[in-house]
Nucleic acid binder design. Sequence first.
DNA 1: TCTGGGGTCCTAGGACCC
DNA 2: TCTGGGGTCCTAGGACCC
Length: 430
Amino acid sequence: MTPPRYALVDGNNFYVSCERVFAPRLEGRPVIVLSNNDGCAVARSEEAKALGIRMGQPGFEVRGLLQRANGVMLSSNYSLYADMSRRMMAVIAGFAPEQEIYSIDECFLRFAGFDHWDLEAHARRLRKQVRQWTGLPVGVGIGPTKTLAKLANRLAKKHPDYRSIGVCSLDALAPSQQEGYFAEVAVEDIWGVGSRWGAKLRALGIASALELKQAEPSLIRRRFGVVMERTLRELNGLACLSLEAAPPPKQQIIASRSFGQLVTDRTAILEATATYAAMAGERLRRERQASGALQVFLGTNPFLSKEPQYHPAALVPLSPPTDDTARLIRAAKAGVAAIWRAGFRYKKAGVMLLELAPADQRQGLLFAGPEEDHAERRSRLMEVVDGLNARMGRGAVRFAAEGLEQAWRMRRDKLTPAYTTGWASLPVAS
DNA sequence: TCTGGGGTCCTAGGACCC
DNA sequence: TCTGGGGTCCTAGGACCC
């Protein structure tokens, strides 16, 4: 029996593709989707890439270019992408016994005991099905390890030999053919090699996937550590990374945002951090965890180098650990009280929940205060709040501390409708 | 005017202990 | 002439991912 095969399936230009499903006017034009606060490009259509717009490039830098090319700039519509992702992942799940959802637009599949299958043909059917049922284009790469599946996926999407098919299986290639392709892949395009390591590898004369594959493992281990050595071994077909079908419990939860405008007002900071504490709390309860410590952090705008900079943080212990938004907000306020200073223009604030542990294994207190006596009622209250917000939209029910006006909220000037998750925004076919 | 947010893992070094 | 060695825990920083 041959060893298992891995596939990596991912959505092409995922956020842009999600938008295009519901807005045919975006077809054939340069389109970019901006990060939160309408900051930088996080997704680009092929036409936008052809214009030279880079990943992470600030929106204001490309506005003119995009306008001249009849292009479109959109705010990110995260609830739309999350919903489209769920649909896409569900369709893909029907094609393999094991699936690891790796990010909003990618998943790994593992095929063990599929010796007599034509996985490439299988992947083509998968691709067609996803397109038909969700409207989303995906690419598929297949290989004996996750790293090789990633590399094959890259070929499937970028290489002229594969682009039109959208599927690439390394198994279909003779070793010499594989080497030819590997030689064409830049070393920083390998999964696990970023720009820093890429530069260091190049300094050692290792510039392509082929050269890393053929490098001396002990040298790589010594200079780059165990992670890179694993990458090297995976490139050589030795599976070092397993499929994680069930996501491990989170170790920390972060909720943070940049402000729409610079903030000098203490009340605004308090409202914002209360809002982030509530967001983090909601995620915490969804994970069925409780937090033993909360950290609040603030920051000025590091791009304004002439302004005084201040990036404080405060850690507030939560004893006993909690998943109650009211307590998280109280802790966040205490944190802000400790670090807030007048005279700075703040750009960003956030809340981190740390020391997470399963909510049902919380250690009892020897001397329980009135707080604990109410724990049962509190957790029922939070359930109701979460339920209402899930049904009626985030913020339908919220704590007064989060503020009403929320003038500090991030910019989302170019937001598309909630096509799939809001009744009022359902597209109408006529 | 204008530059995101949310995560993980590894390593080195210091403190502390025996 | 000449200052041990090893283990654990914690933290900060650096790298990576999407």
